[in-house]
Simulated assay, not measured.
Amino acid sequence: MFDTMTLTKAATGFLGAWLIFLLGAWVSDSLYDIGHHGKGEQAYSIAVESDAPAEPVEELTMEEKFAQADAGRGERVWSKCRACHQLEVGANATGPYLHGVVGREIGAVDGFNYSGALSEQADVWSPENLYAFLEDPQDWAPGTSMSYAGLDAWEDRVNLIAYLETFN
């Protein structure tokens, strides 16, 4: 069943395939190799930025940020909040309703069980407090029951606050 002729055929097939592989590698190297191997001059150099420090970016004040707010864009950001909050008065969901939230006392919604962490941070949901809370709720009020990670872009935060102000 298994004789030397079978073994010879298998070994010849394997060695022939290996030889074809080596020849293919040699041909591809000769086609794509420039031949300098780091000894010649580079044909094209890419300019690299200098190590000089970049000019500092001026941070906008809160007033300048809120002056650029767009309630229409804030309505699109609201879609992220809609899963847990409602805008109708008294319609609490996972989170309290947000109708009239700008300027409202923190923890003032009847029928909603707030975590104590919010009332320890501030008394009123001023635009500045909302801005800081929306940036990172867990950082602004450690221990809050709001599990949302926050809004990274300051434009999204001010636009959302502008949208929520339309419901005051």
Rank of each mutant, 00 (worst) to 15 (best):
S79I: 11
S79V: 09
A83L: 13
Q86L: 07
Q86D: 12
Q86P: 00
L87H: 04
L87V: 06
E88M: 14
V89E: 08
V89H: 06
V89T: 05
A91I: 08
A91T: 04
A93D: 04
A93P: 00
A93T: 04
T94R: 13
T94A: 12
P96T: 05
P96S: 05
P96K: 09
P96C: 10
L98F: 13
L98T: 01
L98Q: 00
H99S: 14
H99G: 05
G100H: 09
V101A: 06
V101G: 00
V102D: 03
V102W: 12
G103A: 07
E105C: 01
E105G: 09
I106H: 02
I106D: 00
G107T: 09
G107F: 14
G107K: 09
G107Q: 08
A108N: 08
A108L: 07
V109A: 07
D110T: 14
G111S: 09
F112M: 03
N113R: 13
N113A: 13
Y114S: 02
Y114K: 03
Y114A: 04
S115W: 10
S115T: 08
S115H: 11
A117M: 08
A117P: 01
A117S: 13
L118T: 02
L118P: 00
L118N: 02
S119M: 09
E120K: 14
E120D: 08
A122D: 08
A122V: 03
A122L: 07
D123H: 06
D123S: 08
D123W: 06
W125H: 01
S126H: 03
P127T: 06
P127D: 03
E128D: 06
E128S: 10
E128T: 11
N129G: 00
N129E: 14
A132Q: 09
F133S: 02
L134I: 10
L134Q: 02
D136A: 15
D136V: 10
D136M: 10
P137F: 13
P137I: 13
P137M: 12
Q138C: 01
D139V: 12
D139H: 11
W140T: 07
A141F: 12
A141D: 03
P142N: 07
P142Y: 09
G143W: 11
S145C: 04
S145L: 12
M146Q: 05
M146W: 13
S147C: 02
S147T: 11
Y148P: 00
A149D: 04
A149E: 09
G150D: 04
G150K: 14
L151M: 14
D152N: 07
A153V: 08
W154Y: 13
W154K: 06
W154P: 02
D156Q: 15
V158E: 03
N159H: 14
N159V: 10
L160D: 02
I161K: 03
A162Y: 12
Y163E: 05
Y163G: 02
E165C: 05
T166D: 04
T166Q: 14
